[in-house]
């Protein structure tokens, strides 16, 4: 077990082993996402109240899921890197931040696009959207901090600390925003998502969520591999990799 842990910490080993996973992950995410998109857009039944516009949830919901999960992935990687001084975990953390921010942005953007036909406005201070916006700010903070230090080691440690503090705060932020929303919720606007969903609508959503998970893993691996090459550029195995065969 310990040896395995140690091996996982080696960027070179990780680079080689992850290379074998990549095609499978790419295949899985492509199949799942294409299936989900076609199923969701063409075959799932129309929503009784929202018509076809509800179909954007097939992007919106998986992106929102992963936006939050991505923050935890980032913070967990940061913690592992900090506690066990594992270089690879640091690289995963660095790779996860822009990815998570992009997903949060997608979730917000699709939310706004969805909002127009549903609420008649692009932006509404709905609890979930507001929390998502705060999450985007947390991501932006991490990315901004990571760019401000002169050395990479310091930048990684600093981001790990900030990510951990953010992780502790996220549940509190989400709860408080939920509570805030119930105080101010106008009675006329009420949007119900998953609970009242017809199974025929829900199944493609499940496929899309799975597809997004695979896609997330794929992009995270690719980002991490880039980060490995960047940081280990002076190692002989990387130089050998760069040699034309």
């Amino acid at each position: 077990m310990w040896q395995w842990f140690h091996k996982l910490g080696s960027p070179r080993w990780f680079y080689q082993i992850s290379g074998k996973f990549l095609p499978w992950l790419a295949l899985a995410s492509m199949v799942l996402i294409v299936t989900g998109v076609v199923w969701g857009l063409a075959f799932a039944p129309e929503d009784a109240r929202q018509g076809n516009s509800f179909r954007i949830i097939y992007i919106h919901v998986p992106a929102s899921f992963l936006a939050l999960a991505g923050y935890y992935v980032m913070a967990a990687a940061g913690a592992v890197g900090m506690i066990w001084k594992m270089k690879l975990a640091d690289m995963v953390m660095v790779a996860a931040a822009p990815l998570g921010a992009a997903l949060t942005f997608i979730a917000l953007f699709t939310g706004a696009v969805w909002g127009k036909p549903t609420w008649g406005t692009y932006w509404i201070w709905d609890a979930r959207i507001t929390s998502m916006l705060v999450l985007l700010f947390l991501y932006i903070g991490i990315i901004a901090l990571s760019r401000s230090f002169s050395t990479r080691e310091t930048s990684t440690r600093a981001c790990a600390i900030l990510a951990l503090v953010g992780t502790v705060n996220i549940p509190i932020i989400y709860k408080s925003v939920d509570w805030w929303y119930t105080l101010h919720q106008p009675a006329t606007i009420k949007l119900t998502g998953a609970p009242s969903m017809h199974p025929d609508m829900f199944k493609p959503l499940l496929v899309m969520i799975l597809g997004f998970y695979c896609f997330y893993a794929l992009v995270l691996l690719l980002n991490t591999r880039t980060e490995i090459l960047l940081r280990e550029g002076r190692a002989t195995w990387v130089k050998e990799l760069a040699q034309p065969k």
Partner: peptide
């Protein structure tokens, strides 16, 4: 503390902590 050694750290500092002040 995180931004202590950074020049022009004050805007960054606001960016980092303001989301945490939401609750």
């Amino acid at each position: 503390a995180l931004t202590v050694a950074l020049h022009k750290g004050s805007v960054l500092l606001s960016l980092l902590v303001m989301p945490l002040y939401v609750p």
